[in-house]
Each structure stands twice: as C-alpha cells, then as structure tokens.
Simulated scan of single mutants.
Amino acid sequence: MTGPVRRVLVVDDDELLREVAKASLELVAGWSVSTAASGVEAHEKARVEHPDAIMLDVMMPGQDGPSTFAALRRDAATHDIPVIYLTAKNNTLGWTGEGLAGVIAKPFDAMRLSAQVSALLGWPD
C-alpha cells in the first residue's frame, strides 16, 4: 500500500453494520477506522480524532444524520471533514451540502466499500 493511511469514522446505530464496515475498510484498504453509535458520539469523536472522512447513517434515533451533518458543518473543528451518507432510502435526490461527498446505499458490498469511498472522495486506490 502506498500513500498515507486514511482515517475514517463510521457512524451507524446498527452495531453489525458498523463492525462490517470497519472490518471491510481495515482489511481491504488498510485504513484506520473508528466507529460511533450516535450522532452525538460521532460529533465528539470527530472533534477529537479529526478523521479524513465520516460515513454517516441518515436514519438514527435521537440526532439523525442530517442533524449531525449540520452540527459538524457549524463546528470550526469539524466543518472541513467530508461526509458520506449511508442510507437504505431509495430517494436521495436533493441531498446536498458543503462537505457532503456523496451517498452510499445500504446494504453495501463489503468488498467494494473502500473503492466506493475512494471514488466519492477522489482518493487514489
């Protein structure tokens, strides 16, 4: 592997999905992955860890993905971190915003996840 080790924060209220995404990104791409189970936890971790990207579930109890995204954008410590939505929703038209790099549909292909993330963020493979 060449280049820097990418650091990604995966946020989802589904523990199994977090673990599958973490294992996939670490084993296939060699990235460093941390996880969060809620929007509030994600914001706290993003402030401390300042990952290269955040993969953010749209539908979560409490603070949902769009609310978390808005909070990240308002915070000077996290406003520049690119965000990719993870969603099972079919209609994602109109989902835009400064720093929203794209959308990945769930369920995702674990073997292709790192390639999808890299393509959305313009990272070399």
Rank of each mutant, 00 (worst) to 15 (best):
M1K: 07
T2E: 08
P4G: 10
V8I: 15
D12V: 07
D14S: 08
D14Y: 01
D14P: 00
E15T: 06
E15V: 07
L17I: 15
V20R: 01
K22M: 11
E26Q: 12
E26F: 03
V28K: 11
V28S: 12
A29N: 14
W31G: 08
S32I: 01
S32A: 15
V33W: 07
T35L: 09
T35P: 04
A36G: 09
V40S: 04
V40F: 03
E41G: 04
A42R: 10
A42M: 12
H43L: 15
H43W: 13
V48A: 15
P51K: 03
D52Y: 05
D52W: 05
A53M: 09
A53R: 08
D57Y: 00
V58P: 04
D64G: 02
G65D: 09
P66T: 03
P66A: 09
T68C: 14
F69T: 00
A70S: 13
A70D: 14
A71K: 12
A71T: 11
A71Y: 11
R73A: 10
A76R: 12
A77L: 14
A77C: 00
D80P: 00
I81Y: 06
V83L: 03
I84M: 11
L86R: 02
L86V: 02
A88C: 09
N91F: 00
T92K: 13
L93G: 14
G94M: 13
G94Y: 14
W95Q: 00
T96C: 08
G97Q: 09
A101H: 11
G102Q: 07
I104N: 02
I104G: 02
K106V: 05
F108I: 03
F108N: 06
D109G: 04
D109Q: 10
M111D: 14
M111H: 09
M111V: 09
R112A: 13
L113E: 08
L113Y: 00
A115H: 11
L121T: 02
L121P: 07
P124N: 12
P124V: 02
D125V: 05
